[in-house]
Design a binder for these strands. Structure first.
Length: 125
DNA sequence: TGCGTGACTGCCT
DNA sequence: CAGGCAGCCACGC
């Protein structure tokens, strides 16, 4: 029979970790896929994109606040709705459809989040 | 059971 | 300085 390993908690699916961090982005601010990935070990920007594509509804996840590193909303069906939601939150776009990072850049996760996840800045590569 | 694919990014020509 | 490419998780057919 299958031997159960000891002292080895089952890993939290990467998508759940992405969603919990996305919840840290406040109204009126935006973060890039890469910014989210930078705080999550073993998660690449691409994977953040994968997770966002599979975002479950009804769980208070502000998916609209994640945009690409160029400061634009990634082109896809639904991008217009994303922009509308952001504008409703006070996020402004210039003529080229770009968000000002200077004004709206997310400042990083809360201390509470870092405590809860045991995030260690020194282990960032 | 395996393969394709989906909200990206930074490095290397 | 623009374009190509590797990275690498879940899930559906």
């Amino acid at each position: 029979m299958m031997i159960k390993t000891v002292g080895n908690d089952k890993p939290i699916p990467y998508q759940s970790r992405v969603y919990e961090l996305v919840r840290e982005v406040p109204k009126g601010f935006v973060a890039s896929y890469g910014m989210i990935a930078a705080f999550l070990p073993n998660v690449s920007p691409r994977m953040v994109g994968y997770a966002m594509a599979a975002t479950p509804q009804g769980q208070n996840i502000p998916w609209q606040r994640i945009i690409n590193s160029a400061g634009k909303i990634s082109d896809r069906p639904g991008s217009a709705r994303q922009r509308a939601k952001l504008e409703a939150e006070g996020v402004s776009f210039n003529k080229a459809g770009t968000v000002s990072w200077t004004k709206h850049r997310w400042q990083g996760p809360s201390d509470d989040w870092m405590q809860k996840t045991g995030f260690d800045p020194l282990e960032m590569k």
